[in-house]
Computed example of a mutant assay.
Amino acid sequence: MLARLCILFLLCCSLLQGWAYQSVPSLTESTRRSPVFLGCSLMEGFRSNYVYRGWKLGDQVWESQFAFSGALDNDWAFSGEADYLRGFDGNEFGQTIMYGELMYYVGDECTLGISVARNWFDKTVLKSGTENGVHLHWSPTASWYIHTFAVYDYAQDGFYGQAAVTWQPLIFQSTAWVSTIAVGVASKYHGVSGLQDLMVRTGPLFRLGEAFRLQPFVAYYQGLAHGIDNHVSVGAWLTWCF
């Protein structure tokens, strides 16, 4: 894993030296009516610890993601992703996620979606299983993105919902500052009901050439339910969009 970190660091340095900033970065990459990125992306990243819906599952976590989405017609779009997270340096934590969503355009830059996901957990407090959910994605302006969702997790035998707001003002050419705040609520989710967790994440987003993004960040997780701790995490994501 240390070798992978070194390779990622060298790649980031070469990208910063080899590509000039060319255009304004965007988290949503809006195309036509959709607030959803249309295309494919590969992401590699790491974070000092990993908190999932209020529970800290591991330290020093490496993560990989493949995501894709597209438009079916003027009214419908789809998206999907596969995520793999694994602790290193003796940390045995692991999580694999397969996710798919079908979205309907209810207005410009606004979709409603239904999703199905499968989670595989390795040596965590949460159980492996399937969940179904409903989602709202809305980009009222180029700098704001809102995502709310509610899912029923059959393995945890309960509901979990979250409302998240992202603000992304441009600070330099092809550089933005991205800040996200999210609040989660649970109903009998792994035995917890009520307000679950608060997450605040902030950091710069660099667009490197036409295809690459680099996003270092620091995040704070505040447990709102009994028995859930507070955590600070630092990390970085490198994404290739195509």
Rank of each mutant, 00 (worst) to 15 (best):
M1F: 10
M1W: 08
L5E: 08
L5C: 08
L5N: 06
C6T: 10
C6D: 08
I7W: 12
I7G: 13
I7T: 13
L8D: 09
L8Q: 12
F9D: 12
L11T: 08
C13I: 15
C13S: 14
Q17D: 15
Q17A: 15
G18V: 12
A20I: 11
V24A: 15
E29R: 00
E29C: 01
E29G: 00
S30C: 06
R32T: 08
R33F: 06
P35V: 02
F37L: 04
F37Y: 07
C40H: 13
S41H: 03
S41K: 08
S41C: 09
E44Q: 14
E44F: 12
E44R: 14
Y50P: 00
Y52T: 05
R53K: 06
G54I: 05
G54A: 12
G58T: 09
G58K: 11
G58D: 08
Q60C: 07
W62N: 09
E63I: 09
A67L: 08
A67V: 04
F68M: 14
S69Y: 06
G70R: 05
A71Y: 02
A71L: 09
A71F: 03
A77C: 02
S79P: 06
A82P: 09
R86Y: 13
R86L: 14
G87E: 08
F88Y: 15
D89M: 07
F93S: 12
G94D: 11
Q95W: 09
Q95R: 14
M98Y: 15
G100V: 13
E101L: 13
L102R: 09
M103H: 04
M103L: 08
G107H: 08
E109Y: 09
C110K: 13
C110E: 07
C110A: 15
I114Y: 06
S115A: 05
W120S: 13
D122K: 14
K123A: 15
K123T: 14
K123C: 10
V125H: 14
V125Y: 11
S128T: 13
G129V: 04
T130S: 11
E131C: 02
S139V: 02
S143Y: 00
W144I: 10
I146R: 04
T148C: 05
F149T: 01
A150E: 01
V151A: 01
V151S: 04
D153P: 01
A155Y: 05
Q156W: 02
Q156G: 02
D157F: 04
G158N: 04
F159E: 05
F159R: 02
Y160W: 05
Q162E: 15
Q162C: 05
V165F: 07
T166F: 02
Q168S: 00
P169G: 03
L170G: 03
Q173R: 14
T175Y: 01
A176Y: 02
S179E: 03
A182M: 01
A182C: 00
V183N: 05
G184P: 04
S187Y: 09
S193F: 11
G194V: 07
G194L: 10
L195G: 07
D197Y: 05
V200S: 05
R201A: 03
R201I: 01
R201M: 04
G203R: 01
P204V: 03
F206H: 02
A211S: 14
F212H: 08
L214G: 02
Q215H: 03
P216A: 00
F217N: 02
F217Y: 09
A219T: 14
G223T: 11
L224F: 12
H226W: 10
G227H: 09
G227P: 11
G227F: 10
I228H: 13
D229E: 12
H231P: 10
V232Q: 09
G235W: 11
A236I: 07
F242S: 13
